[in-house]
């Protein structure tokens, strides 16, 4: 894959949050929220990120937008490293990268009418000339399934699904290339979820958008994504095309995650892999493979040595000793 086709590429990104304590605020340790994550997103495609809460999905989204400063690594958007830009340069590139937040109830200012919420940044960045401003906002609102007379209303007058449409319109108004969707449908009802997902897909076709779709709902991710990354404790454990990963999940964590999804059919009694316990603290992650404390295939080597990234099939990468031929050979020899 050549560098040019990727709109965004993240290389070995790390984000640590310091833990401070005491009177002088000396640093005691760090929460390793994102710990060495790399992926590429080609233009016009959708990457889904899945994982349990607290695994660092949202932190990745925010670090890509530089809402958080990185600790290490690179975020290259369209050939530029976002974290090396000056304030002014960053301001210029910001309209091209947008975000839709999880909770449409708390991400809209209650004191601003909808037209102003959507239009504020348009005016600020001078996206369209002044005389076209009104028409432009109307057009964006229509695209997102809102009516023109909604412009003068306030957020409290809208239902959850409509508010999420407003959030989408706000992101879209800046004519972005890339949108981070941080759990955009988790707070909505099933029937509304479908409307919003369809809307996101339509807009993607129309404007050739690229999405990073963060969600813990695997069925939604399967529907919308072209490729999927599974995260556990700040690292990617498996990365592949959607069909490959859902057809043949390799990492034990991915398998457990997929088998935990309830199937809407009472006759299918799943052979369930139930994970014991909960996710360990990212401030003090287990040594070796981070997943070994909950893994049912855990071997001795997993407790000592962190696994390498192994490309099992072209494009299907997994971080697990089980697929490392060298280690498995050693193990057989020992027997």
């Amino acid at each position: 894959m050549s560098e040019n086709t990727n709109l965004l590429s993240v290389k070995n990104l790390k984000k640590y949050f310091p833990i401070k304590s005491g009177l002088l605020g000396g640093q005691k340790g760090a929460v390793k929220a994102v710990d060495g994550v790399s992926f590429d997103i080609p233009k016009g495609k959708t990457l889904g990120l899945v994982g349990e809460s607290g695994c660092g999905k949202t932190t990745i989204g925010k670090t890509i937008l530089r809402l958080h400063d990185k600790t290490e690594g690179e975020v290259v958007f369209d050939g530029v490293d976002i974290h090396s830009l000056s304030r002014e340069e960053l301001r210029k590139i910001r309209p091209r990268i947008q975000i839709i937040f999880q909770d449409p109830y708390s991400s809209l200012s209650p004191r601003m009418p909808i037209g102003e919420i959507i239009g504020e940044a348009v005016r600020e960045h001078g996206i369209v000339p002044k005389e076209q401003f009104d028409d432009y906002i109307t057009k964006i609102m229509r695209d997102c399934g809102l009516q023109e007379y909604h412009k003068d209303r306030y957020p409290h007058e809208f239902s959850g699904g409509q508010r999420q449409r407003i959030c989408i319109a706000r992101a879209l108004a800046l004519n972005p290339d890339f949108i981070v969707c941080d759990e955009p449908v988790s707070a909505l009802d099933v029937s509304i979820q479908a409307q919003i997902i369809n809307l996101l897909e339509d807009l993607q076709d129309k404007y050739n958008l690229t999405y990073l779709f963060i969600s813990h709902d695997l069925s939604v991710v399967e529907h919308i994504s072209d490729s999927v990354g599974v995260m556990y404790l700040g690292s990617l454990v498996e990365f592949a095309e959607t069909d490959a990963i859902f057809g043949k999940p390799l990492h034990p964590y991915t398998q457990a995650l997929f088998s935990a999804i309830p199937v809407p059919d009472p006759d299918i009694k799943m052979d369930r892999v139930i994970l014991e316990g909960s996710i360990p603290s990212p401030a003090n992650p287990p040594k070796g493979c981070k997943f070994h404390t909950r893994c049912r295939y855990a071997m001795d080597v997993c407790k000592v040595e962190p696994p390498r990234t192994i490309e099992v099939d072209p494009g299907h990468k997994v971080v697990c000793h089980l697929y490392d031929e060298e280690i498995m050979k050693n193990k057989e020899n020992e027997k």
């Binding site: 099933v190 029937s191 979820q193 479908a194 409307q195 997902i197 369809n198 897909e201 695997l218 069925s219 939604v220 399967e222 529907h223 859902f246 057809g247 997929f258 999804i261 199937v263 809407p264 059919d265 009472p266 006759d267």
Partner: peptide, 28 residues
Amino acid sequence: FHSPSHPYTVGLMESKPAINKRVERLYS
């Protein structure tokens, strides 16, 4: 689940994406 009859029940079931059952467009 096997013979949903009311149009609302049917719609509710169709609007939920299901694993390993890909559709072009979700029903809403």
